[in-house]
């Protein structure tokens, strides 16, 4: 039975006693807080992976909300590849201090000392050592049985199939064909010793939701997201557009490349050698949102690691990557 043509949304404010509606952001917030509380209550040693990016910033705020007025009942863990932007590290330490959370930093010192970088190796092997291996070592070292990550299902095709509680075997691996069914809001937290669960409280958020929430809630984010004159290597690409490579690590430059000052910003934060900037004038959050609305490319289009091979994110995740 089709809806009558005359039915329309209210033209005047709903009467005082009409049931209220919760906006999509409030609904997403409520779901995420529920997940954070479940994990904190059902696991022995949970940890929150804190990557300093906008998604981590939202996740951290949700953790504050979930346990208020009590403190966040688990530590934050940052896996530092040694290639993060200096601004990110300052921001990280400041945020941990502000929210009063315990901050753990883990680096694969052996691989860093051996000169691992994405140019010497390829991005796949570099990520494997500095991110995946470091993460697995840290989880094992501290004996964490659950780790929150800020990944969202809208980011990438294989992530669309990720559960909110993503089961990992004792080697930290993901088996996409053998995932636990996840019904209603009932999550299965049972694991055997050595196994662990990765938990994604922002699963159902989109990039737009994240920015809108940051805007509404006044959540601090790293300055690199805002447009500013920054030194960049400008490299022509086969698509006709230039790639902007931040001047942070000397080995990134190819022969003859000189840094230029470009008004630019980062759309997603990763390691400086593998994260391209975009030309932009967006220096406020509403401006970023306006820019997002006009974008024709997905947010990870500038991230080298997703594209080095067909289905590359899925392969990394199978091996234990977040």
């Amino acid at each position: 039975m089709p809806v009558a043509e005359s039915v329309s949304p209210p033209s005047t404010p709903a009467s005082a006693f009409a049931p209220q509606r919760l906006s999509h952001l409030r609904l997403l917030e409520a779901e995420s807080i529920h997940i954070l509380r479940e994990v904190a209550s059902e696991f022995e040693r949970p940890v929150m992976l804190y990557s300093i990016g906008k998604d981590s910033s939202v996740m951290l705020r949700l953790a504050q909300k979930a346990f208020y007025p009590a403190p966040i009942p688990f530590p934050l863990l940052h896996v530092d590849t040694g290639f993060k932007f200096a601004e990110m590290l300052t921001f990280r330490d400041e945020m941990a201090r502000l929210v009063g959370a315990e901050l753990l930093v883990w680096r694969n010192e052996a691989a860093i000392a051996a000169g691992t970088n994405p140019i010497v190796l390829d991005t796949k092997r570099c990520c494997g050592l500095l991110k995946t291996q470091a993460l697995l070592d840290a989880l094992r070292h501290y004996n964490f049985d659950a780790a929150f990550g800020g990944a969202r299902r809208d980011e990438e095709k294989s992530r669309a199939k990720e559960r909110i509680y993503s089961f990992r075997d004792s080697a930290g691996q993901w088996d996409p064909k053998n995932q636990r069914p996840e019904l209603w809001n009932l999550y299965n937290a049972r694991i055997h010793p050595g196994e662990s669960i990765r938990v994604f409280p922002l699963s159902n958020w989109t990039e737009m939701d994240v920015w809108q929430y940051i805007h509404e809630e006044n959540i601090p984010v790293v300055d690199l997201y805002f447009a500013k004159e920054r030194p960049m290597y400008v490299r022509p690409m086969s698509t006709g557009q230039d790639a902007l490579l931040p001047v942070e690590q000397a080995f990134v430059a190819r022969k003859g490349e000189q840094p230029q000052m470009i008004k630019s910003r980062l759309r997603s934060l990763g390691c400086s050698p593998c994260t391209g900037a975009i030309r932009s004038d967006a220096d406020t959050i509403p401006a970023i949102i306006a820019e997002l609305l006009s974008f024709r490319s997905s947010e990870r289009a500038n991230r080298a690691i997703d594209h080095d091979q067909e289905g590359s994110m899925e392969l990394k995740k199978r091996e234990g990557y977040f």
């Binding site: 906006s23 999509h24 952001l25 809108q212 805007h215 509403p286 401006a287 949102i289 306006a290």
Partner: peptide, 14 residues
């Protein structure tokens, strides 16, 4: 405008 867009977004449900 972005301001109007954000105001509209706040009303959206899911």
């Amino acid at each position: 405008s972005v301001g109007e867009f954000l105001a509209e977004e706040r009303e959206k449900d899911l």
